[in-house]
Design a protein around this nucleic acid. Structure first.
Lengths: 207, 207
DNA sequence: TGTATCCGATACATAGATGTATCGTAAGGT
DNA sequence: ACCTTACGATACATCTATGTATCGGATACA
């Protein structure tokens, strides 16, 4: 997050990407001028065009980076929980889920940026394919920990783990977006829809 | 949908609104120039500024109209089903749900327009409040028909009807968006996520 | 310390969008 | 049929964004 101020190419690119994430989240890709992004990063457009071809290229890199971060964060957390011996008898599956979901970059700006990425995926078929691929990876990670829990004999599901994982993803996204709309701050947002998500988990679990 | 070509104020406004719906869906609010909307409608900007204050005003009117249409379509359908005696023993609750959901303007452009409206609701608190209010109305309608089914003694839910209705809305939205991303055409989209939605209904129903 | 190189700032040319002011014309009333 | 009014087209001035070409200065290396 905090980026040094020395003068190196990589550093400049990182600061521009960070600024772009904020500005794109706030006003959208089309609403954001290259100038605005540069100003936020403390540069002029000279720096921008020296590092990126166009606003579109910057956006693609940003989206790729965001996808990578999300996927690997979830995957790391899942691995950690699995190795950590969190899957003991009497463990709290709802709590586990929430721990995983909380990594999704679920602050206000994160939600807005993901929404911007999502709408872009809706307009551009190729980009959409990448978006869906990234989501499949996240679903696979969630599915994996669900399977781990199941094979530990701690509970049974009423649905295939993959279906359950996808439902959880969709529900989680829907709840965070609505939370952000309702003006929840970042702290509230972090547990937004926890209620509903918990109830969904209850439904998924075979009593 | 088909709008006469006579020269009257109301007609002009309607054609501009219709064109705006298409263009906004395709390229987004910020990506759409007033010129592009006018061109699509077969007018010049003169007509536009004679009828609307700004692009923003046009968008607000459009969003309002869309909300109105969606809410009343769902409400009408629910009333119709209730009066129609569809709630008989052995009725198919999943089919009922799908019939209701299919009204949401779930063609490709409809999905994209709603996404545009949604992201706008995310950026503007006041607009977001209106968006959530509209959604609450739709949820209320769905909740009502669920309650009708329940009080007819046809089934029992494992959750409060309101929670169930909200889950269905969110899941339906998520599935149609993903369907549109995956390149499903309008016909496929109409049943998009029907599988998952059906499974969710199964979960909601007390066996 | 001197020098070559890299990187970001500045300046400029161009394109596109906006909003307004004016003009021409079609419709409606008498 | 004439006149008035209303509506949309055209033309124009302005503003903003973009991309490029050039310049200045900091950094790294000898």
């Amino acid at each position: 997050m905090s980026i040094p101020v020395t003068r190196s190419r990589e550093n400049t690119r990182a600061r521009l990407l960070e600024a772009a994430a904020q500005v794109f989240a706030e006003v959208g890709l089309d609403g954001a001028s290259v100038e605005a992004v540069c100003e936020r990063a403390g540069f002029t457009r000279g720096a921008f065009y020296s590092n990126f071809e166009s606003k579109d290229e910057l956006f693609l890199m940003l989206a790729g980076s965001v996808a990578e971060v999300r996927v690997s964060a979830v995957r790391a957390r899942v691995d950690e929980l699995a190795a950590d011996g969190a899957l003991v008898a009497g463990c709290d599956p709802i709590g586990l889920l929430q721990q995983i979901m909380e990594l999704g970059g679920d602050d206000r700006l994160g939600v807005m940026l993901m929404s911007e990425i999502r709408i872009r995926a809706l307009r551009d078929a190729q980009f959409g394919e990448a978006y869906l691929a990234q989501e499949r990876e996240m679903v696979a990670s969630i599915e994996q920990i669900i399977d781990d829990i199941i094979s530990a004999g701690l509970l049974r599901l009423r649905l295939p783990a993959e279906t359950a994982a996808r439902m959880l993803m969709i529900m989680w996204e829907g709840m965070t977006v609505r939370g952000a709309m309702a003006g929840e701050d970042d702290a509230q947002l972090r547990h937004s829809g926890g209620e509903e998500l918990g109830q969904l988990v209850q439904l998924l679990i075979e009593s």
